[in-house]
Nucleic acid binder design. Structure first.
Lengths: 206, 206, 206, 206
DNA sequence: TATGAATGAGAATTCATTCAT
DNA sequence: GATGAATGAATTCTCATTCAT
């Protein structure tokens, strides 16, 4: 709907998947339509037939990508009862979603860096859904006297920022980390982030 | 010498400053030499005279950008005595550096997203210096029984990731945050991050 | 049969009408099959089904267009007795035909400008019929001592050129004419052309 | 000035000349930038460097073309004293200008056919200058009782339309004219047009 | 140092046409 | 007859880089 006229077809899906990878890896400007065509074995004109333009293709990719992540995370917190389980589930689900689809954090960081210049509204709204979910958890925790008051956005940025950065930097890290062996798995890192945030937020009764 | 042939001059400085902005805003591929020339009023050939190539210009920009940040942060923790003060200073200094030069987090996120494809070694080393500084603090804290054991990289990612994301997303945020009034200042957010991390890491004697 | 394979049908007629407009407005090269399809609501492949190719479509359009005009003009002079009435009728009929179907003069001028590159033979023959009709009138007038001798082609060009130019330039004229109020109706202009030509050709007895 | 930034250089002149020919011969849409580059031996990018876009190039060509013609014609009538000599000179000069630069009538007819869609304002103004010159002549003749009253636009169309059509159709004519030998020279045709118009306009004292 | 001009190698987009259903 | 999908071959335009002055 709107201008993103995604005509269903295997070809379109094939293109979109490959394009999402390329956009995540090389960015919008670094992604080359010829290469996408070559990579998918699809004629360049077909890409334009299905998506209208590079921008249109990008928007289709972003919308699908971010709605997928938002759905996964929100689905993961729904069945949880306690505030801490919800927080745990939120972080774990986001981490898993990002890890399984590392395109998302890559694209997210790039878009953030350019103030979302190319980001379609629909993709932005998915991020809003996530933030809203987190906000609900934090407010409930605060109301019940379990969590210290804090700006949801701060927590959101800490979760999304740290995990995205970590996952995205996996290839690069071997060069920055002081020692390769110091590298830890995403699971471990997620665990640490989750603990740190929960410890940091927990109301400590004296 | 190396490859970064920065012949000092007012022109070169002018170019580099504008280029840093453009690289941060549009990325390496999205930055166009013609536009840089137009924006600075400098002849395109002059840019090549001063920096050799787009890549050379980029590296000069990155090196300056990141060494500045690393120097600031490390200078800020040096005079601190207690582990907590050092941690505090680290976070505050990084936040201030990023806030004063928002090009840095933008470039950082972009580079992370593309696995540091265009990042010169010298710029990477500056990031390593930062991580090493943080590691030193955390290890000392752990040795003294003040901090829980944690991977320095985790903390690094939380600090750098959350603050970078926050600062960089300032323009975009009005669209993502659920309510504009929920937007908080960088100082407040930094404070919250600092508290949360210190609370989360502090060893709690029962 | 020939090359103009016009399979009659409502669809074909619809296409041809819209195509004639587009060819007249944008020229052969400027007319785009996709746009024609969009404008008519007909599937692009259908156009090819009915007309074989863009060139085939063009030829069908041209033939219809020019034979219509030639028939109208020749039918108008047939019932006239005097040479002057015939000349009058010729000019008036051409003017009316061109006015009712301004596609014709537009296409005519374009084709002339490109040496009739795309013009099918059948359409050219219609123009020849017109010229032959005019020639017959002029020769008869000359034989009877009523008209000065002149090349029929000269008169033909004056009639066709001036009226075509005038009719076709109606939209543009508001910009060229020195004053909008100077703009006159096609009928008036035709009248003036007719008078001027007849006055100019009339043998003046002393 | 304006957007038509014609950076002076031999190359630019070379390009513009060849482009004018191509635009006249093939029309705007039919003119291919690659061919122009090949024809001139100039790199394609140079064309864009000098003229910015195909449209920009077109506008530069049109402006030069039409101002040349207007200048020639107006210069030719200036030294004439009598109204009839001025009229004669106008027609002869336009004919010669069109004959020497047959690009002009071709382009003119094409532009008229598309309502001047691509015609820059500056080129239109040149045509206005011409029309204004003719108007001045006709009004003076009328005031002196030498010429019948007539709309200047009618005469303008007869002159420009007939001569343009004639000159432009030279190649095509062999196919339309009833007999090749009936073809007459531009000079003869111009003479006939000139006589016809002057005879037709002359006030005949009884 | 500075600059106007030039260019090779792309890169996005278009368009007439075809084909399977 | 009709249609969605596909495609090869252009075609316009871009961009980093170079060069002569």
């Amino acid at each position: 709907m709107s201008e993103i006229t995604k005509k269903s077809s295997k070809t379109a899906a094939l293109i979109q998947e490959a394009a999402t990878n390329m956009f995540a890896t090389y960015g919008f400007d670094g992604t080359i339509m010829d290469e996408l065509a070559a990579k998918t074995g699809v004629n360049k004109a077909s890409i334009y037939y299905h998506f209208g333009s590079k921008q249109g293709l990008y928007e289709a990719c972003m919308t699908t990508l971010f709605s997928g992540v938002a759905n996964q995370v929100l689905a993961a917190i729904a069945p949880q009862d306690s505030v801490f389980d919800q927080l745990s589930a939120f972080i774990a689900a986001f981490s898993q979603a990002a890890y399984k689809s590392p395109n998302m954090p890559a694209v997210l960081m790039r878009e953030m860096a350019s103030s979302g210049k190319n980001m379609p509204k629909s993709a932005r709204q998915q991020m809003q859904r996530l933030l809203f979910g987190l906000k609900t958890i934090l407010e409930e925790g605060e109301r019940k006297g379990l969590l210290k008051p804090i700006q949801p956005l701060t927590v959101h940025m800490m979760i999304v920022g740290s995990l995205s950065l970590y996952i995205v930097s996996e290839p690069l890290r071997r060069g920055i980390a002081d020692a390769p062996q110091a590298d830890i798995s995403v699971a471990e890192m997620t665990e640490e982030v989750s603990n740190l945030i929960q410890n940091g937020l927990k109301v400590t009764e004296k």
